[in-house]
Nucleic acid binder design. Structure first.
Lengths: 337, 337
DNA sequence: TTGAAAGCGCTAACAC
DNA sequence: GTGTTAGCGCTTTCAA
């Protein structure tokens, strides 16, 4: 037995229009009629067809989530936040990765154009400016995560990478280190940029000299951290402390330190950024910056739903920065309690 | 300008039926007609409406993926495999977690009934028997991942947990340990069961005594590993080596060992299962079992697509077990190269 | 090879 | 308050 809106209507002795009104809480319906329909629907376990609904109303109750090519722990947590919040709003999640085979933008365009979603959350660590055009042209609202500055004319939610970097580097300075080096992230990555700027600015503000040879570029990978550490420690003018732009690189730096027979933090202090699981396990425990990723995902979805509902103006640009927190380990020189 | 199938038909001077045939590669069409339509469609960047298509053909090109409540690294990798393969088949992925608030089965039923997907991949570490009924009743095909034995009348892809456990415990035995303990996973979890059976059987086969007081239950969490280790090492009759049913618990056991001032592997050897990132970082490096999770996801999706296409019989039950590999660290007593 | 037309199940504008 | 009806965009018989 096929139960669709017609069947419900037939059995309730009303028209399908009335059934539709009840189901969508739209328009006036006599309470008893309403109850009769609701009861029957529940009884027959009737679920409206999402496709029919989408076809006639262009509403899918589905949110697109576009992930970067490399998905690690960090992104998994964001998704968790998105998913939890999506569930509160009865939204479904359609997930797509930017596969290396295909261009980021193509993936995104395809996704947005398909009409499968009411809107999308995009996480792409480094976006071309092109993407902003795509988003502006899109019929459906979009929220960007961690991938654009507040200057861009879009909606975005970000971690306050700049302040996080300042905080942790300030902590190093407070320890008395004067020669502080950094293993940077990829230049095109906006988060990496902000973390570097935070590092740079706090050094200068605190009256320390910023030295180019204390800074080396990595790509957020373990191996690049390892390599960066070898380079920094291979020079005659060695830094006393290293700020790795993320925990993976910090852990790579640990490996290099071990190979060089350098004790952390006695010979060189190391701090990271992201607060991944491994950082809490290794010895000495890594001092790092905690980023509220679950919360980030939550808020992004919440705002996006607002744009879809019309609660928030989708045309208006909006930016929010979530603040980070310091996780004190022993790798900076602090004693364990 | 709205471009739908009608528009394409109008501009090509053919009927929409013909356009539909071309787009779906169904039924005979004169090559030139076909080309004309294809060219025009490309030129206008025409994309068929997935909802209209789904409404009339019940095909969504979307696969549902149901995750367990706790999603870690392990599941992330499975998803990666699923995603990569899905992309090859031009399938979209709709992801849903089993939130703690709601019952596993409810989540699954809802998902399957909604008609949003052509089929689903379900990962639920411990399923009630009830679920098999649900799956059998479902109109859409389902593949289970890591959550049922080959006795069940469904399609499933699994890691060969039993052999993996045998392998790694055999490795411990080869080291000469005679007193081998285990920190088990949750009893209801089928993977945990298989790992325990592997442990048990190889001990017996190799002529070692199986002692109940060498075995303790955990729940796959870090803390339960820590606690289990404390219990095992707190007794008078201490095991010489511990097999933790997963890496998280093995790492928890490391922490306990450290607190007890026990050296690994000199005082006690520890091995794990899963080969997570952290296991390769910690010292001594954890000897563990590598599980081909990306491949698992790939195969599952591939098979599911077959069932949807009709290549594979959805009514027939099928089971596949992927074999594991040993990752030798130093925690078992092996020397690093 | 091609076209006409009947759905697929629902929403929303309009009429009563 | 409720019913009628015209789509939404596509697939799929059935005829031609």
């Amino acid at each position: 037995m096929k139960i669709n809106i017609q069947e419900i209507a037939r059995r309730s002795n009303v028209s399908i229009a009335t059934v539709s009104r009840v189901l969508n809480n739209k328009g006036p319906v006599k309470p008893e009629t309403r109850n009769k329909i609701l009861t029957l629907a529940k009884q027959l376990n009737y679920k409206p067809s999402p496709h029919a609904r989408a076809l006639s109303s262009r509403r899918t109750d589905t949110i697109g989530v576009i992930l970067p090519e490399l998905v690690d722990e960090y992104f998994m947590d964001i998704i968790q936040g998105i998913d939890e919040e999506a569930h509160l709003f009865n939204k479904y999640l359609m997930i797509s990765s930017s596969h290396s085979q295909r261009n980021d933008i193509e993936t995104i365009m395809e996704f947005m154009g398909s009409g499968r979603t009411d809107g999308a959350i995009i996480m792409a660590p480094s976006l071309h400016d092109e993407i902003y055009e795509v988003i502006k042209k899109s019929k459906r609202p979009v929220v960007l995560l961690n991938c654009c500055s507040s200057k861009t004319n879009v909606v975005s939610f970000n971690i306050d990478n700049y302040r996080g970097a300042r905080q942790i580097v300030a902590h190093l300075i407070d320890h008395g280190y004067r020669k502080i080096g950094m293993i940077k992230g990829p230049d095109r990555n906006i988060e990496a940029q902000a973390r570097f700027e935070g590092f740079h600015d706090i050094l200068v503000e605190r009256g320390l000299e910023y030295k180019e040879n204390y800074v080396i570029s990595g790509d957020f990978s373990l191996t690049s951290g390892n390599y960066g550490m070898l380079r920094l420690m291979g020079s005659d003018d060695k830094p006393q402390a290293i700020f790795a732009a993320n925990d993976y690189m910090a852990i790579g730096a640990y490996q290099a330190a071990r190979n060089l027979n350098l004790k952390i933090p006695e010979d060189v202090a190391i701090v990271g950024f992201d607060d991944i699981f491994t950082s809490r396990i290794i010895h000495p425990r890594l001092t790092t910056v905690h980023v509220p990723v679950v919360e980030l995902g939550r808020r992004a979805l919440n705002y996006l739903v607002g744009m879809i509902d019309g609660t928030k103006d989708p045309a208006e640009s909006y930016h929010e920065e979530l603040s980070t927190g310091l996780v004190i380990g022993e790798s900076c020189g602090c004693k364990s309690k």
